[in-house]
């Protein structure tokens, strides 16, 4: 059901990861993801995977929740792994069913499938963890601060961040609304599941029109409410949560940097690497 979507959700908590300065958290996530793409052998990838799992453990988000988020991408995962198996024909041949066919499964194919799968899982773990442990307001605040140098180029960073806050706030409301409108139109016999592509697209009109009309009404009312609360689009507003880089941020930053250096070194110097994957990169 549409209500089960967890992407972009926030799970309030008091763990080390929750308490990190959101700016540091964003930077670390970006660094980790970059490092993930630099991995060239199993050793470095393993290092990154362990690091992602450690982050999950530190965040104290229940494993069940994390797995639920991963379930959404299971199909993509299987598909990409599948492709890797067939597009690699290096290494020892494990299975070659028809003599004259190009189709065969090789050790390198299997290895690269595993490699890609682990990389995607780590990527999802790291990026969902950022939204799971940071409130949307803090996240957009942090992005606003990180992007503030762009003001020099006349980019309206504050307005962009405000828009993001409001968008994130209204996503659950709109999901719920779509659910209700769909049920209501189905109750009047709307058929959303059968017919040609064009028919199905047409069947969306009774859902999209009310959704847009209602969103405009919401926007109009929200604007009044924001005005009544003295919002003037001013960047000088104060904030409830002051962002301060503390000792724990420094420590996390240092630990991550050490790990990343290890990843880069092991990758390029092929330290401890028993198989080198030049092509995977």
């Amino acid at each position: 059901m549409i209500r089960d979507i967890t992407i972009g959700q926030y799970f309030p908590g008091t763990s080390l990861i929750h308490k990190l300065d959101p700016r540091v958290k964003i930077v670390l996530t970006v660094l980790n993801i970059a490092a993930l793409f630099l991995c060239r052998n199993f050793f470095s990838l393993l290092l990154m995977f362990v690091m992602s799992v450690v982050w999950v453990l530190l965040s104290r988000i229940p494993f069940k929740t994390i797995l639920k988020g991963l379930k959404m991408i299971l199909m993509i995962l299987i598909f990409t792994a599948f492709l890797q198996i067939f597009y690699n024909d290096g290494g020892t041949v494990l299975w070659h069913p028809v003599e004259n066919w190009d189709f065969k499964i090789t050790t390198e194919g299997v290895f690269s499938a595993i490699f890609i799968a682990v990389r995607i899982v780590s990527l999802i773990l790291l990026s969902t963890l950022l939204t799971y442990t940071t409130s949307p307001t803090l996240l957009t605040d942090a992005i606003e601060r990180l992007l503030s140098p762009l003001k020099v180029f006349k980019v309206k960073v504050h307005s962009l961040a405000m828009m993001m806050t409001i968008a994130l706030r209204f996503i659950p409301t709109l999901i719920e609304e779509i659910d209700i409108i769909m049920s209501a139109q189905k109750a009047r016999g709307a058929d959303l599941e059968t017919g040609s592509l064009i028919q199905r697209a047409k069947a969306l009109v009774p859902i999209l029109v009310p959704l847009f009309v209602n969103s405009f009404r919401r926007a109009y009312e929200l604007a009044f409410a924001m005005e009544a609360r003295c919002y003037g689009g001013d960047e000088k507003r104060t904030r409830l949560r002051v962002m301060k880089v503390s000792a724990r941020d420094i420590v996390m930053l240092a630990v991550t940097l050490v790990c990343l250096t290890a990843v880069v070194v092991t990758s390029f110097a092929n330290v401890g690497g028993f198989i080198l994957f030049e092509r995977v990169i």
Binding site: Y10, S135, P136, T137, T173
Partner: peptide, 8 residues
């Protein structure tokens, strides 16, 4: 629903 600005 239409006067709450933040998620928390």
């Amino acid at each position: 629903d239409n006067q709450i600005v933040a998620s928390i």
